[in-house]
């Protein structure tokens, strides 16, 4: 499956590869999302690799990354500092990837991103003894 915009996954170790494998298991096809790991990479090397990827893809392009305070997110933000149409989304998860792949017809990228964030936040649910921790707002 193809996301609505060119998308790169930048994560710690094998997290991104695991996310893409899980998405493939659910979707039946590997998502057309590129992936790079920070394993063994200096911040400068990772920054350079992300910049190279951004140079090779049309804007707007999306970089999905994991920990908002981690080196992957930092390098991603630095890589987009002079690219106002490039987007970094931290906190990537399987629900986020699936929501992105299903994102269509949102008109513009900002609306799509708001929808993506909302869908991802809604995917976090807590159950205690099998019951929801709190009632969903009506």
């Amino acid at each position: 499956m193809t996301p609505p915009y060119p998308t790169l996954l930048v994560t710690h170790r094998g997290y991104g590869e695991g996310l893409l494998a899980a998405a493939e298991a659910i979707l039946g096809a590997r998502p057309e999302i590129d992936h790079m790991s920070n394993e063994g990479m200096s911040p400068e090397a990772l920054l350079g690799a992300i910049e190279t990827w951004l140079d090779a893809h049309a804007s707007p392009a999306i970089v999905l990354t994991d920990l908002v305070f981690g080196s992957c997110a930092q390098s991603s933000r630095l890589a987009t500092r002079n690219r106002p149409d490039s987007i970094v989304v931290a906190g990537v998860s399987l629900p986020m990837i699936l929501a992105l792949l299903r994102s269509r017809d949102h008109g513009d990228v900002r609306t799509m991103l708001q929808h993506l964030r909302q869908r991802t936040q809604e995917s976090v649910c807590v159950f205690v003894g099998g019951q929801p921790l709190e009632e969903k707002p009506s």
Partner: peptide, 11 residues
């Protein structure tokens, strides 16, 4: 730490 403040430091 070449990465300065990052996941290993924070977590």
């Amino acid at each position: 730490d070449q990465r300065l403040f990052h996941g290993q430091v924070a977590v």
